[in-house]
Amino acid sequence: MITLNHYLAVGGLLFCIGLFGALAKRNAIAVLMGIELMLNAVNINLVAFNHFLAPDQVTGQIFAIFVIVVAAAEVAVGLALVLNIYRRRLDSNIDDLDWLKW
């Protein structure tokens, strides 16, 4: 029998894999990919909760749709920024973004 906890475990795994990508990758686009994985993990959580705990309402699914919308907006702006910076520095590595410090 597949329970809620199975889904939550998948969500948790996906979240932490995404987190690792976001924390450990040099390329800004890869960091964005990691963030997308994290958001997907949250959506699995939301939909699973919806399905197992409060099936009479679609709150979790609605929430997930909003998360998808927000994620899309974030990706759009983020990639535009990456392009902008790339044009200026010919580089999309985050390590090199340290003009602002101390």
Binding site: A24, K25, I94
Partner: peptide, 22 residues
């Protein structure tokens, strides 16, 4: 798509968070 210099720490933190969540 290489790792940055603190990927080890990142791995530890991610793993710890995973354990906590699960």
């Amino acid at each position: 798509n290489l790792y940055n210099f603190n990927y080890l720490a990142a791995g530890v933190v991610s793993l710890a968070l995973l354990v906590i969540i699960i």
